[in-house]
Design a protein around this nucleic acid. Structure first.
Length: 428
RNA sequence: GGAGAGGUGGCCGAGUGGUUGAAGGCGCAGCACUGGAAAUGCUGUAUAGGGGCAACUUUAUCGAGGGUUCGAAUCCCUCCCUCUCCGCCA
């Protein structure tokens, strides 16, 4: 949510900054609504002040022995009634304007950070660095894609999963299920070892939580909803973790709060028909280990570097080559002000694929969720950051493709052996 | 799911229509006392919005929403949540 004061005082700045995202908006009408709303509020509270004064006068008279049905009291009563009526009219108008303002403001994305590179689309994203050497097929060698490997080694069921649910679901089996579990534990241990607090949140979340982190109202069609309740399947642990501190004032000396949350994530993937239909890349349900920071505004810039580094550390520990790109203003998500994506190399596919997205949201989610910090006398909004550390299914895909051996087995990185119990998958 | 009890400030807790944003206590902060501390004393200590350069001022908020009233934490209605007992259950 953007600041209403900013809308009143400087809508040009908002238009200009959202213009960097490729949006063309004229906010003069919305600004007018905001100003009307403010004027109405002023009128209304002046009237209420008058009403309060009268109420106190009546109380004083009656306590002073005046008859409660005497002429003096009756006159004040009539006056009070008139004010009450006027107030209720103004209140109604004010509520209408407030709702309009809130709805329209809630549909606007965050302003991109000044640090974010300008650009129109994915094509304008900026590569920041690469790590490791992408594995390429040696001469005469054919590298399989992860779904081919998984099928060959019986790591998951795809056809049967359609029977259980529908397409874009998989059932991990045997060593595949074990590998997923190992990865979750490995990632959680890595992050908690750095001081992150582990969270296992509800994965059904209410509308207020989705609104607080920015998924509602604009992206309702992207989440699964439970028809009989005000509950949705969370698309990311970012949602419940943001709401962990919704409507709270956090003492400044407790910041930053750093959480690591494992959760299954559910996405409808509307509009992706035909894309990534095989394997673990794009599913309605997938596992993710999410990093999340609540921090002081003064430190969010460094925090963004740190949370990204913490995600990169997982890839490095798993010896998976990757590149780090910074999203341009045209490609940044709704709630984010600045985003780094980490893309892992998939040798079988011969391409880099997104495996983590690390964003700073500034005060955007904090304003929607009313999360403040208290430093001395006043309060101010905190900054929130999130980063995948990592998407587990895609990590498995990368491990399978990266570790494939001539004999058809998969060599796993040393760091995972204590978790998986073996350095190889698929040797009989 | 059935029956009962209850939701008040960071916490505990008083408050059943009148000047109550809310007694008292705890906690916290400042000051005094002290060589330093403890103890003690004094003062201060909610959030959000509006106006004002500021001092300050004003409105709202006692789970949420509506109603009665000149006036509601207090009365009425609806909803939500928590606790206890019973039932069911991983």
């Amino acid at each position: 949510m953007l600041d209403q004061r900013l809308l009143r005082d400087n809508p040009e700045l908002i238009s200009q900054q959202l213009g960097r995202r490729g949006m063309a908006l004229d906010l003069t009408k919305l600004q007018l609504i905001a100003k009307q709303e403010r004027d109405l509020q002023e009128q209304r509270s002046n009237l209420q002040a008058e009403g309060n004064r009268i109420g106190k006068e009546v109380g004083g008279l009656i306590q002073g022995g005046e008859a409660s049905n005497g002429p003096a009291v009756q006159g004040l009563r009539d006056q009070g009634n008139r004010i009450k009526q006027q107030v209720s009219v103004l209140e109604e108008e004010e509520k209408e304007l407030q709702a309009k303002l809130r709805d329209q403001l809630a549909a606007l994305p965050n302003l991109p950070s000044p640090d974010a590179p300008d650009g129109k689309s994915e094509a304008d994203n900026v590569e920041i660095k690469t790590w490791g050497s992408p594995r390429l097929a040696a001469s005469g060698e054919t590298l399989e894609e992860h779904w081919q490997i998984a099928e060959r080694l019986g790591l998951f069921e795809t056809e049967r999963s359609v029977r259980i649910a529908q397409s874009r679901f998989v059932t991990l089996m045997g060593q595949g299920a074990r590998l997923e579990r190992s990865l979750i534990n490995f990632m959680l241990d890595l992050h908690t070892g750095k001081g992150y607090r582990e969270v296992l949140p509800p994965i059904l979340v209410n509308s207020a939580s989705l609104t607080g982190s920015g998924q509602l109202p604009k992206f309702a069609e992207e989440s699964f909803r439970c028809a009989d309740d005000d509950l949705w399947l969370t698309p990311t642990a970012e949602v419940p973790v943001t709401s962990l501190h919704r409507d709270e004032v956090i003492p400044a000396d407790q910041l930053p709060l750093r959480y690591v949350a494992y959760s299954p994530c559910f996405r409808r993937e509307a509009g992706s028909y035909g894309r990534d239909t095989r394997g673990l890349i794009r599913l309605h349900q997938f596992n993710k280990v999410e990093l999340y920071w609540f921090c002081h505004p003064d430190h969010s810039r460094e925090a963004h570097q740190q949370i990204t580094a913490d995600a990169e550390a997982v890839l490095e520990a798993l010896e998976l080559p990757y590149r780090k790109i910074e999203l341009c203003t045209g490609d940044i998500g709704f709630s984010a002000a600045r985003t780094y994506d980490l893309e892992v190399w998939l040798p079988g596919a011969g391409a880099y694929r997104e495996i983590s997205s690390c964003s700073t949201c500034g005060d955007f989610q904090a304003r929607r969720s009313a999360i403040r910090l208290k430093d001395g006398k006043g309060t101010q909004l905190v900054h929130t950051l999130n980063g995948s550390g990592l998407a587990v299914g895609r990590t498995m895909a990368a491990l399978l493709e990266t570790g494939q051996q001539a004999d058809g087995s998969i060599k796993l990185p040393a760091a995972l052996v204590p978790y998986f119990g073996s350095d190889t998958i698929g040797l009989a």
